[in-house]
Design a protein around this nucleic acid. Structure first.
Lengths: 187, 187
DNA sequence: CTTATACGTCAGCTATATTGACATATTTGT
DNA sequence: ACAAATATGTCAATATAGCTGACGTATAAG
């Protein structure tokens, strides 16, 4: 079924191995397959969550906020803006809704009380978890139909696709990450 | 650098090989790394083109239309809608602008004159090419910092991420695909 | 000759983002 | 103590990209 397409790509890949040193790839001819696959893959990937979010009257923007707040408890507004790369006015609309609906809560920073550190509530964490689970299932389905090396390869590929300057920030400040955000400016 | 993330994923992946039959991966714990990497990677990938499009006063929507029309000369409206998964009203706004600005042109179908078959003009093809080249350079940069197998792996991964029902359609009707209506000129 | 199809268009609505200006609380530097 | 910088909130206007619904027109097909 899908093997046709897959086979094609695999063949294309199996080019004269030695010819590929460091000048392996030139951009003389556009890499249309990857361009289009990336578009379709992303669209279908976010589609899953989009459909679930409709039940809560939330959109993709809410999802992103909820996700990152959940992953980085104690995240400050400025840090969130920096991750999302949107303006505070844009953020405020969706954040306000999440706060009012009780999915996220804000506490004043301890060392700097101007800050509003964000945390998911139990309810918010639940939804974030549901969404992450849904998207994880998508990945699991995908990875299970690919060789075992696929996960590492996908991780490496996606990481390399991220602007070099951003890759640092991507490495999630797990657990107590956000709290020390106070010093974010300092570093 | 990236090894932290990478190592983690590779280890997780290196589970008792035999245990990975069909139950290889469970979704008990969300695959946060891939979820976030995919988000950031897509954002940075489309960012390149977005910046170039500003010079033409076009947005991402114009890009998509231009791209697919360029790739599938002779594409009919209905087929384009099916690819983009938007409504005709949404399409019409951007398509009209592309037509008026002379980047795309429409000719009546020969066998069915109700259809408007879309083609890029020389100007449109030029811009499409520029954009594709820009995005290809992104991929080339990425693939050149990864092992040779990365391209095949990325292709397979992205293809698998696409909804199964869609994968067929994705296999680009290259060259004479839907456009073998080359006769369009003739008749 | 009626119905179905391919497409265009008007009108109004929503979600997500933008810029610019201004307000308020708090921290910091002198 | 005070001025300036900072973190955040908010009001207003605007743009883009999508949506639904309703209706019109040309062409194809039964």
């Amino acid at each position: 079924m899908k093997s046709a397409v897959q086979r094609k790509s695999l063949e294309a890949n199996a080019l004269p191995a030695p010819a590929r040193r460091r000048e392996a790839l030139r951009a003389d001819e556009p890499i249309f397959d990857l361009i289009e696959l990336f578009f379709f893959a992303y669209r279908d990937f976010v589609g899953d969550a989009d459909r679930m979010l409709e039940n809560y009257e939330f959109g993709r923007a809410h999802h992103r906020v909820l996700h990152f707040v959940n992953r980085r408890p104690g995240l400050a507004i400025a840090a969130l803006l920096d991750i999302l790369k949107i303006t505070k006015q844009s953020l405020n609309r969706v954040l306000k809704q999440l706060l009012e609906a009780g999915f996220v809560e804000a506490r004043a920073g301890f060392s700097d009380r101007r800050q509003r550190l964000l945390y998911t509530t139990a309810k918010g964490a639940g939804l974030a978890q549901e969404l992450a689970h849904l998207q994880s299932e998508h990945f699991v389905r995908v990875l299970n139909e690919l060789p075992a090396s696929a996960r590492g390869a996908a991780t490496d590929f996606l990481l390399a696709m991220i602007d070099a300057a951003e890759r640092e920030r991507v490495r999630v400040p797990l657990s107590r990450g956000g709290a020390r955000m106070t010093a974010s400016k300092a570093s």
